[in-house]
Design a protein around this nucleic acid. Structure first.
Length: 555
RNA sequence: GCGCCUGUAGCUCAGCUGGAUAGAGCAACGGACUUCUAAUCCGUAGGCCAGAGGUUCGAGUCCUCUCAGGCGCGCCA
């Protein structure tokens, strides 16, 4: 509808220019917007205002010229008005919305799929938590945002892969190994000191116990170094398995689990460093090797090989991202916790240095989550190993509520996750508000089949012209906005837009439901209305699916 | 000290990347169930968009500064 109006206005402007009623043939971008107030019409354009300077004409004159030359062959527009400083307001004929409903039924689960990606390959990397401990709610937020983003991009024509980067190399894995080893010693009755920088959590004991069960004797026969290695491998595998399970319970799966260690094993880290040196993008100084990130917008150069010969995390990250593009992804999206935001400039610099365009890389920062219960912060201390895990949260509030809460905030907005509120089945918890629409309509459809002999297929070709109530027009208008909401979410990488759209559509439906009956004595009217609400159900189901939220037929 | 993010109704948050009179839910108050599910709807009330300047036809939105909160500034990961 918006696009059509834009074309109408552009044609009118062209015609006006040809007729000499406008001074310039340069119309720029013609923006069609939706006024907040109903008295300003269904749509409006500010063309006369933005064009005033190039046309060298007062806005009112421009608006008049546009209206005079407007051609509307499909009779979409009921009325046009000039208002305020020079807005052109369009009032759409009720019947013009009917094709929207037909489109919903024709396209079904694909309604709203605007082809932005055109088959380009994109990779979304998210979570990527170190396998050194259980996931917490902050990881959950990143996980849900990343997953929904991937689903939306995929829906919008990108060939999308989800990837998890496993930091299984480096020091923290070593620390994990020694933590487990020391706990094993302790369990075996060999007193040891447990250093402060080791992982304190209770889960380390669990891992130690199950490791002892499996290879008690063998562990203490090796030298300490190999024992720590064995502990590290065992623990990382165990923890990763749990992470996998937690994510699966949240409805999230990955196409690829990518090992950092594999970059070392295949020589890709060494290769990346060699390439940087070769291209004179890195240099040696003070015994270390530095990448010239300051040439690409970072505030200073960064070390990639330390004085002791070991590579930094940054080095493997450069190799990792090189590899992503080598695997054929045109666009790479990383979802990180906001506490890593300081890392963005240097990685962007590295990617720019590899010759990639800025649009090809994007970091989405998911802000930290404060867990609260009835407004009181739940104390969390990772160091002391006391924290509520993601699993506990999901078990308590449910997958749908958890996902929806993460998705009803802008990802860069801090989030207070209230466990009590999340459990309540009220409007504080809009997921039920939206799901309730799906359930209500499902129920109506069952009743239609059982008591009115109107089956699902009997609504394919009803007398849509009978849909004239304002609430019915409103619903169709609302459905027409869905493709735009999805496209906006994809372009801006803001999945929350889909969630907010769904709440609006749900509100329009509940209002309609309370005012009008779908199933009436008039069979023809019932069929028409059933067609309408079935369309609403399709769009609601479509959106909930994108967000990974279930679509219950009964509640 | 420097950088990034956040600041909108009592609370939790939107505000479509500059448009007209600022939006929703919760909480408060008053109404609507003999009906296709009341996990719903209708109404009332609630605002110096943190503050001050600036840019322009027009600013919650863009620029500068100030204030408050969060996060980050290693040859750690």
């Amino acid at each position: 509808m918006k696009n059509t109006l834009e074309k109408i206005v552009r044609r009118a402007a062209q015609a006006a220019y040809t007729a000499g009623d406008l001074n310039s043939g340069d119309f720029g971008d013609i923006v069609i917007e939706e006024p907040k107030v109903a008295s300003h019409g269904d749509f409006a354009t500010n063309f006369a205002l933005t064009g005033a300077s190039t046309q060298k004409m007062p806005p009112n004159k421009i608006a008049e010229a546009i209206i005079r030359h407007m051609d509307d062959p499909e009779q979409l527009i009921r009325d046009t008005q000039i208002a305020g400083p020079g807005f052109i307001n369009f009032f759409i004929s009720p019947a013009a919305w009917l094709p929207v409903l037909q489109a919903v039924h024709e396209k079904g689960a694909l309604f709203g799929a605007v082809n932005i990606g055109r088959g380009r390959r994109v990779q979304v990397e998210f979570v990527s938590a170190n396998p050194t401990g259980p996931l917490h709610v902050g990881h959950g937020r990143g996980a849900v945002v990343g997953d929904a983003l991937a689903a939306i991009l995929n829906f919008c024509g990108f060939i999308t892969d989800r990837e998890y980067y496993i930091n299984d190399a480096g020091r923290q894995i070593r620390t994990l190994g020694s933590s487990v080893y020391l706990r094993c010693m302790e369990l075996a009755g060999r007193a040891t000191d447990f250093p402060e920088d080791a992982y304190q959590g209770e889960y380390i004991y669990d891992i130690a116990r199950s490791l002892m069960d499996e290879k008690n004797a063998a562990l203490f026969e090796m030298d300490a170094d190999s024992a720590v290695d064995a502990c590290a491998r065992y623990a990382a595998d165990k923890i990763l398995e749990n992470i996998r399970t937690d994510l699966k319970n949240l409805g999230i799966g990955f196409d690829t689990w990518f090992s950092e260690q594999s970059l070392y094993d295949s020589g890709k880290v060494a290769e990346a460093i060699r390439v940087l040196l070769e291209k004179n993008l890195a240099y040696e100084a003070e015994g270390a090797t530095w990448f010239k990130s300051s040439l690409f917008g970072d505030e200073k150069d960064r070390v990639i090989v330390r004085g002791n010969g070991l590579t930094t995390y940054f080095a493997s990250d450069i190799a990792y991202h090189m590899d992503k593009y080598d695997r054929g992804y045109e666009r790479v999206i990383d979802v990180w916790g906001a506490d890593h935001h300081g890392y963005v400039p240097r990685l962007t610099a590295a990617i720019t240095a590899m010759g990639r365009e800025p649009e090809q890389f994007r970091v989405v920062l998911a802000h930290l989550v404060n867990l609260v219960r009835q407004g009181v912060p739940v104390s969390m201390s990772t160091r002391a190993g006391q924290f509520v895990t993601l699993r506990e949260v999901v078990d308590e509030v449910g997958v749908d509520a958890a996902r929806f809460i993460f998705l009803t905030r802008h990802h860069e907005s801090p989030l207070d996750f209230d466990l009590e509120l999340a459990k309540q089945k009220t409007n504080e918890n809009p997921v039920y508000y939206v799901q309730y629409v799906y359930a209500r309509i499902s129920s109506i459809m069952k009743k239609a089949a059982a008591e009115h002999s109107i089956g699902s297929h009997d609504v394919d070709d009803p007398m849509l012209a009978m849909l004239t109530e304002p609430e019915e027009i409103q619903l169709m208008k609302q459905m027409a906005k869905y493709p735009e909401a999805v496209a906006g979410a994809a372009k801006m990488m803001e999945p929350h837009r889909v969630a907010y759209y769904l709440m609006e559509l749900a509100a329009a439906f509940h209002a309609y439901y309370n005012k009008h009956r779908v199933l009436t004595q008039d069979n023809e009217l019932s069929r028409s209305r059933l067609c309408l609400v079935k369309g609403v159900r399709t769009v609601i189901g479509n959106g909930l699916t994108l967000l990974g939220v279930s679509t219950p037929e009964t509640m």
